[in-house]
């Protein structure tokens, strides 16, 4: 009883700190790889973060690493319009003082063209080609205060390279999870300090902070999800439902809707997908409609293993 009261007060204090540390939007932020989602499972559930079962929690909410019953890895990849290649790998391992996770996430684009202007014709001409890459390394730690109450934190290191430019920066993530028999509540702050990536020429790109409050309610073979996300001083809702066909989590179908920001405007999209678990391996796929003129589908793939 006393433990529960202490845990509740601690949770309220930590949430207050998370809320107050959300800074106002600054100019010149950067597209982070996590903007594309961290696993097919979370994308299929309307990009609701904090409920991944495996090491992908390193990117979503490090407090969620408590669900990894043994060590394991996860892998996620997708390409957007055949030009932007996203991939991440997550690892989790046990230590005597808690679970430790490692994650690497990158987004990369190749074949960008640096140009010159022909002084005579005024036409633009190709000079050379270069690539663009954002890399994100995460080192996470998770500790369980009780069977229901879990804490997690992660250190994030970012690097951005393009043309002859290199920029680096770092930040911190912090998360809480309360897991009862029927429902799970997840609070997560990504890039808590809202720091910056600094380039060679002293220009900076802000690493945006994001705050998530998510709820999962389990009923029969269904789970319903809701997430409220705060980003760029706007509130974004996501809803999802999944259905555990065989009632043993081996084949799960999910359907979701999310709100997201495009140049400060709120837009909506539908997602759906499925997850298959077989012999310790899990496979996930997700689909989402896209604005793109040439191909209006985005397809995501995830795989992982517990050992």
């Amino acid at each position: 009883m006393i433990t529960n009261i202490v845990n509740s007060r601690l949770m309220i204090c930590l949430l207050s700190v998370l809320y107050l540390t959300q800074s106002a939007l600054m100019a010149n932020s950067i597209f982070l790889p996590t903007d594309a989602g961290s696993s097919a499972q979370m994308i299929s559930k309307g990009y609701i973060e904090g409920f991944s079962n495996g090491p992908a929690s390193v990117f979503e909410n490090p407090a969620g690493l408590y669900r990894s019953e043994s060590g394991g890895f996860s892998f996620f990849t997708t390409s957007v319009i055949d030009e932007v290649f996203y991939k991440n790998i997550g690892l989790v391992s046990f230590t005597p003082i808690g679970r430790v996770g490692f994650g690497y996430y990158e987004s990369a684009v190749n074949g960008l063209i640096s140009t010159t202007e022909n002084e005579n014709s005024g036409r633009f001409e190709e000079a050379y080609q270069f690539g663009y890459r954002v890399s994100n390394y995460k080192l996470a730690y998770q500790y369980s205060l009780s069977p229901q109450f879990h804490l997690g934190a992660a250190y994030s290191y970012y690097s951005n390279t393009f043309d002859d430019e290199v920029g680096t920066g770092s930040d911190m993530d912090f998360g809480l999870v309360y897991d009862s028999e029927d429902f799970i509540i997840s609070f997560f702050s990504r890039n808590l300090m809202s720091s910056s990536i600094t380039y060679k020429d002293d220009s900076t790109s802000q690493i945006e902070s994001e705050l998530f409050a998510s709820l999962k309610y389990h009923w029969d073979q269904y789970s319903v999800y809701y997430q409220l996300k705060r980003k760029e001083n706007k509130y974004l809702n996501s809803y999802a439902v999944d259905y555990d066909l065989l009632d043993n989590e081996s084949l799960v179908f999910a359907l979701g809707q999310r709100e997201y920001l495009v140049l400060g405007e709120i837009k909506q999209s539908m997602t759906f997908g499925m997850e298959l678990k077989l012999l310790g391996l899990n496979f996930g796929t997700a689909f989402e409609k896209s604005d793109y003129f040439e191909n209006n589908n985005k397809i995501y793939w995830s795989t992982g293993m517990e050992f």
């Binding site: 939007l25 010149n28 932007v84 430019e165 760029e232 140049l263």
Partner: peptide, 28 residues
């Protein structure tokens, strides 16, 4: 509006057909 640092892709479309495409980096 705030345009993030990243890569942007453009299409040139005529008569409902893509006639050209390219990409550029927006830097801080």
């Amino acid at each position: 509006a705030e345009v993030k640092t990243g890569v942007y892709f453009f299409l040139l479309i005529s008569e409902n057909e893509v006639i050209g495409k390219g990409k550029f980096v927006v830097r801080p």
